[in-house]
Design a protein around this nucleic acid. Structure first.
Lengths: 206, 206, 206, 206
DNA sequence: GATGAATGAGGTTTCATTCAT
DNA sequence: GATGAATGAAACCTCATTCAT
């Protein structure tokens, strides 16, 4: 049994542990996205990760933990594009920012052999009965909303919206559009993101 | 030479069959909404329906069929409020119509012992790997969009929108908001529907 | 529900009962020969016979009874050809008689939609654990042996065998050949009956 | 950079696997011979083997596989006595060889707690609807016939049969006798093997 | 730390039979 | 007599998890 490792050479470093964990989680994500959280069996994941049954339980104490970790890793990176824009100080039309966020999601979804879009929808269902994952998800979505609100405010302050515009209302409406677009992609195969966002931009002014 | 048997023929009304089927399906919906499609076991449903194990299979040949029927019955009634408005000829602000639709969903969700909102999110996940249910869902959502477009057009024709307004873009944007609001309710417990729809109404004019 | 009946016209004659029973048994034979005694389900037989579930139990109290009746009806007609020869007084070479018997079996096997050869092998297995069927089978095979012995004796008396020939030994040897030939047909698809019987005839003189 | 794990590696001998498999198969043979292939339940076999339900499926993926393996192990050793005689170079009267073969079958049948004779008849029935087992059986029976033909030829060459004797015909006739004798034992309880084979020997000269 | 064979509760489904109509 | 919906025990098989090596 050989394991690839390219850091320094401690016999059993925490780094080694984390690498192994990531390796297993990546395999789990592939299997989960292919078969769904519940249909995926530990045996499938074990085979995909090329790890022994006993070993996997050293890194994830149960299938539920593995699923939770998978859900977490699905949501976490979602808000990166917005943070990036905020940190750059760029003044961007909020719909444009959301367009980039959505494009990023889709790109990540189709890049490798893990379908993150499918996983996201699965995670929604799973989170309904898993408080930990639900909290995780809530935080991520609140983060997105807060970031989006910053952009909306900035857009108003740049003079593109009236001074008394309902920035929170606009933020909420815009943020609420994302799951719908994502779901549309999964169910219908088509994506109307540009049309929806353009209409937003033209009529609501954001 | 033929003999016709005309002794007492057992009366088996087709109505009875449908009643029994509905009874089982209702029980399944309760269990599915409580535990999720896959975590729910046939034994749970059998217990909830107070039916024998063998009996349930006369009405639904497999658990998958039961799940499909459950999914179907979740989606089907969703679009009723819009159809009602259209048929009444009423000229309603589209955001107002969507507000009613959402309110209807929430009301139905919390009325009995079947949480239809949870079931809807589960069905999204399930549909990703079940073509039949996916088709069903696609039809229902297309129906909603088409109905909504009728209302948007009517709203424009009533002079509330410029003649060259992008009715389809507005429709898509507005329709895409629903899953997000529904999801928000399930994940965060809060509902920003009024805020979101009001913002829409004020800024986009619909 | 129409039942064909062409005797006189009593409302519920014993004859009607027997006809119905035969109809069911014939259906059972078709299903049993197609799927095997145990793999065949009562539902299959019910469907094949176009009879109601309740009705079939009026004629055969259990599946075992139906199987026993089926086995019985498989063995019974087997010995007819030998009896016919004996009654005709014809002096026939015993191997020739066995050839006719075997030909009769094969012909019956392939005539209709009931494969009696397959049923026979199934019945052997079934009879191992069903005393009634085993007794039935024993009687039929003893009958065949006794009849065959008559033919062998007659053949010796006609001067074709030495006066001190072991007629019982020859009978037993010849009778024992039948199951082997039948089995060969079922397993290998080929039939060496002529070769085997000719060799018998040439070398053993019968 | 690769790290080789060289801690204690669990010893899993392939021998252990085969032993366990044989243990399970032996238990299955006992149960199958007692109750028949289909009436025997996996639960029965599991109990007889004193193995867990899950474990048995590691060695035999399905009941059908277990039945096939059982059938195989029933037929395979059947032809050993003939091969032994051939290899010893001994010139034996073919009927004598068949007598030994039959005696061997009966002895094996009654030695332990597995009735191989019953299993053989069950396997015939089973093989009618299982191509794999049918092929297996065909090969074994062809092997027996070929070996028997060698003995018949050898017997002729030793001057005990005329030079132009139909060796194949005699072989086929003699081989066809075995199933009949076996069946007779199972159905009637008696065995006429000596009588039948002696008659063969005296009259047909083999 | 790592392995994978073993576990056994629990999953879905079938099927011979009964009985109210 | 006839019907077929209902029954429920029992069938085969899976799978998350453990533990001796």
């Amino acid at each position: 049994m050989f394991i690839h490792y390219d850091g320094p050479m401690p016999q059993r470093s925490p780094q080694h542990h984390e690498e192994r964990r990531d390796h297993i989680l990546a395999a789990a994500l592939r299997v989960f996205s292919r078969d769904g959280f519940q249909a995926a069996s530990m045996a499938d994941i074990i085979a995909e990760a090329q790890v022994s049954a006993g070993s996997i339980y050293r890194y994830f104490p149960s299938k539920a933990d593995l699923a939770a970790a998978a859900g977490k890793s699905v949501f976490l990176p979602a808000s990166a594009p917005l943070r990036q824009i905020i940190e750059s100080g760029e003044v961007v039309r909020p719909t444009e920012a959301m367009g980039r966020l959505f494009a990023g999601l889709i790109e990540r979804a189709t890049a490798g052999d893990t379908d993150y879009t499918a996983l996201t929808v699965d995670a929604w269902a799973y989170a309904q009965r898993d408080e930990g994952l639900r909290t995780e998800l809530a935080e991520v979505y609140n983060g997105i909303r807060n970031n989006l609100h910053i952009l909306v405010t900035r857009w108003r302050d740049a003079g593109h919206l009236p001074a008394d515009a309902d920035t929170w209302g606009l933020t909420i409406a815009l943020a609420a559009v994302m799951p719908g677009l994502l779901l549309q992609r999964q169910m219908l195969g088509t994506v109307d993101a540009p049309a929806a966002l353009t209409a937003f931009a033209v009529h609501a002014g954001i």
